[in-house]
């Protein structure tokens, strides 16, 4: 886990761990509420204290109900979200990595302008752009289709910045030179040399893109009016709103359980990707 640090293996510090545990508690309290709430029935949610268990342990029945409510639409929403994330976040990472690499390692006319335009565009609040985007997509016939979600998720300006900075620092020009001299084309150089060095940055970008696409709410809400295309966020909000108004039938227990189930794939992705933070070191390559 820490092979890259100094040959003198530092001792594990209990003090440091203790301080971090304090911060951890701060992080965990709301998460504990979430976890405990998934063990309660709807009635228990309203009548028992938040940070302890309810009168009965309904964790497994909640999961079952969440997966089967309304003919199992939760699974459909889950499938939609996976599709949007795999194509959207995957595509976003690829585009951002390539573009960051290009901006960092190539000098061409308009480079500064690209940066300025990017910054300017990201600085405009997205919610006010929702209606123009909707009208545009409507004219292109894309609303109420999966493309309305996927195409906007392909652009991750933050991912681009991240990759730009990492590429500047982590990919030495000499390596690229060496590969070119050996006769590789630009794309070959990118895939064989740069990608490996950029791995930690790519993993971070991918993770962020995954989380933000997975939790994307506002744009799907505007673009979609067919419930069987909804991602989980919009679907769960619909369940949550069942608690309001005439004929209300709250199912908060399914909402919290659904939210927990929503987080699990992200945690799994995190755990799977984290070993890539260990690799990608350019140790020794310059010598």
């Amino acid at each position: 886990m820490s092979a890259l640090t100094s040959p003198l293996r530092p001792k594990r510090s209990k003090l440091l761990t203790g301080v971090m545990v304090l911060y951890l508690l701060y992080t965990i309290v709301p998460l504990a509420w979430l976890l405990l709430s998934t063990t309660k029935t709807q009635d228990d949610l309203l009548s028992t204290p938040g940070l302890w268990f309810g009168k009965s342990f309904a964790f497994f029945s909640n999961i079952k109900d969440t997966l089967t409510y309304n003919d199992g639409i939760f699974l459909r929403w889950l499938g939609n979200t996976v599709l949007y994330v795999v194509v959207g976040a995957g595509g976003a990472t690829l585009l951002a990595t390539a573009a960051g690499y290009g901006l960092a390692k190539y000098k061409f006319a308009g480079r500064r302008a690209v940066f300025a335009v990017l910054l300017g565009a990201v600085a405009v609040p997205g919610t006010a752009l929702a209606v123009p985007t909707f009208l545009m997509f409507s004219n292109l016939g894309l609303t109420n289709t999966v493309w309305a979600i996927i195409i906007p998720s392909l652009v991750s300006p933050f991912g681009l910045y991240l990759m730009w900075v990492y590429a500047t620092d982590a990919v030495p020009g000499e390596l690229l030179e060496a590969a070119r001299i050996d006769g590789a084309g630009e794309v070959r150089v990118f895939f064989t040399v740069a990608l490996r060095l950029l791995a930690p940055g790519i993993v971070t970008t991918l993770l962020f893109a995954m989380v933000s696409t997975w939790n994307n709410y506002f744009l799907p809400l505007i673009m979609l009016s067919k419930p069987n295309l909804y991602p989980l966020t919009v679907g769960l909000t619909q369940w949550s709103n069942q608690a309001t108004g005439v004929g209300a039938r709250p199912i908060y227990n399914l909402v919290v359980t659904g939210s927990l189930l929503t987080i699990v794939p992200l945690v799994v992705a995190f755990l799977l990707l984290q070993r890539f933070w260990q690799s990608g070191l350019s140790a020794g390559s310059v010598k």
Binding site: P132, L135, M136, N139, L140
Partner: peptide
């Protein structure tokens, strides 16, 4: 697309 949007919207 922008022109189309302006026209239609």
């Amino acid at each position: 697309a922008v022109v189309a949007a302006c026209g239609g919207g």
